[in-house]
Design a protein around this nucleic acid. Structure first.
Lengths: 191, 191, 191, 191
DNA sequence: GAGTAACCGAGACGGTACGTCCTGTCTTGGA
DNA sequence: TCCAAGACAGGACGTACCGTCTCGGTTACTC
């Protein structure tokens, strides 16, 4: 994570890096986002890159996370059940789409590369968890939730299955499947 | 996947490879199980290794899967709810233990390496899913299950959260956490 | 070199090998005539091949030598000078032609591979030297030769330059060049 | 062929490579001068080696050529005939000596490996030809040469036979043999 | 005409070298 | 002072060919 506001050069360099990485990810997936390739395309030297990120996965996480944030806006259907079910459907659709594989590969990379894990967490998981926690809190406030169930538990039960399918591909990620999963999970989580 | 009963030489070579890989995995995790290292330790040439497996991840999956199979026996507590909850606890304990990280890394590797995915599926997922499906069927037979819920859905809702936590490490995998997750999930799955 | 007259199978096998090798040489040069390729195309197993030849170069030498023998018939112009000059021209033309490179590569291979050297000698050099020695003897008998010059010396002075050029390619192998070389050499060899 | 004066690192690396190669050639001939071996002994990585040379033969040519240059100084006996005959004797002695086989194998390798041919030419042939051309020019200036004979022709007729014998080993490379060959050749070349 | 021995195809195998790729560190020279 | 440019060591990759070996079926002699 970058220094605050040193030379403006740093900032420009970082932007170039993230932008180049975004392009490379789009073109060839994580495999194409080599440090050399990022350096070449961004015009930022490898030494500088390594000054700001610990590994290529970290860069990819930051670059990809930026655009994913807005890709899945929180729903507001009026009911907790509706909101959460819709959110499961949206995340499922995202996973099934073209960015799904990239996300899966980044997630996988973060397992192998511990240095990148904080980046993955920061740019993907934490933001998402916070957003859904908000939904959950709404439900709690409305009294729709069974007592004693933390937001963390709820999130894992709702989205863990999607992650599971995304990684192993043992079952499809269609809207119907998403609804089945969310229905079962929400039956256990809500009143 | 090799032919059945060709030359005995094949079998010896394959055994050597799997055994050497098992050792390397134990010593240094998947990162240590390079094809070169496996070749050196097993005395099997790289060419031969590549004749039998498409990638190092595939070898690791087979080698590791062999010993994992018996590591988590199916429980039989008398009730579906008890059986499934206990199984979630056991799997959770396995993930939290020393083999957990190896398993996580193999799972992650299979995302990056499509050639290895079938091996991961064969040696880890399919066997496990079949075993738990059996548990589920017992529950169905006893009439303890809500109607319209497939084994696949049940498995994903029960174990997806564990996989999620294993990969991202955002929450612990203690017995208590496992119980919370299984309780929430089973409330949604069973009557 | 093969056993005398064992099973006819051997003979068929050897013919197949030589024929396949000839084809491979024509298609891709010596580089394509690997033992595996020869085995595959000829239907003769590698073990059998190694029973009859010590190395792939040896096979190639035998296969290629067979057809080269008749490619350069001895001239008979009536005079020693004419015969020898014509022979130099013919050999030069052969070297410059499509077979030249193959011959060069075989000759080169025989330097690296001592086991193949006898084959190269038998199928290329000896036969050629004997043939030209005959020409030389004719010249001696006619009294056209300076005294004290052996056939070996004559052959080397006449054809060594061609070999030199064939190998290093530092100068062309045209008819004019051949004539210049043979003229200079023959001035030193004949009266 | 490397750039002139880039980083001094390049120079150090290249020197290490050539030095290690020289040693390996001396110890085990061209067969021992593997790229891996050169890399291991010189401490220069394979990638770097391949950045500077196209093939192992090229490295060997450069390494070996460096020391061969001074090994055969040009003679100056006062007469063209004497100089050239002496030079043939010296080259012959070199070929017959311990370096002869290495030279032969490099020459052979350059036939198989076109990428290395320029290196062979640069480090062996061109320098030698230039040196002998000088001798030849002296002879021309002294009027000892028959008219119409180019240096190239003279060189080939004089040294081609030696190359021929070096490669095929069909005749010895003693001083007497060298004298016979040079005598015959010079009779044809000089007045 | 059956038995038996040699032989052969098929191809797996260990070994060795190849040439490529990517990482993360380091150095140089210019801005 | 900071950075692009990129050279470098290290190490894994996947491939190719070699020469040896083992197997099982066929062939061709022997009795």
């Amino acid at each position: 994570m970058p220094d605050k506001a040193t030379h403006p050069r740093s900032l420009r360099a970082q932007d170039s890096v993230l932008c180049a990485t975004k392009e490379l990810l789009a073109e060839g997936g994580p495999a194409a986002a080599t440090v050399d390739a990022i350096s070449a395309r961004s015009g930022v030297s490898k030494a500088t890159i390594y000054k700001h990120w610990p590994s290529r996965t970290a860069i990819a996480a930051e670059a990809f996370g930026r655009e994913m944030a807005a890709a899945i806006p929180l729903p507001d259907t009026g009911s907790a059940r509706g909101d959460l079910a819709e959110q499961v459907r949206r995340v499922s659709r995202f996973y099934a789409g073209p960015h799904g594989r990239v996300f899966a590969q980044l997630l996988a990379a973060s397992v192998t590369d511990p240095q990148a894990a904080p980046y993955i967490r920061e740019y993907f998981l934490d933001a998402r968890r916070a957003a859904v926690s908000e939904l959950w809190q709404r439900a709690v406030d409305r009294g729709e939730v069974k007592p004693g169930i933390s937001a963390a538990t709820a999130i894992d039960v709702l989205f863990g299955p999607l992650i599971f399918r995304l990684l192993t591909g043992h079952a499809p990620l269609t809207a119907e499947e998403a609804d089945q999963l969310s229905a079962a999970a929400l039956d256990g989580l809500l009143r």
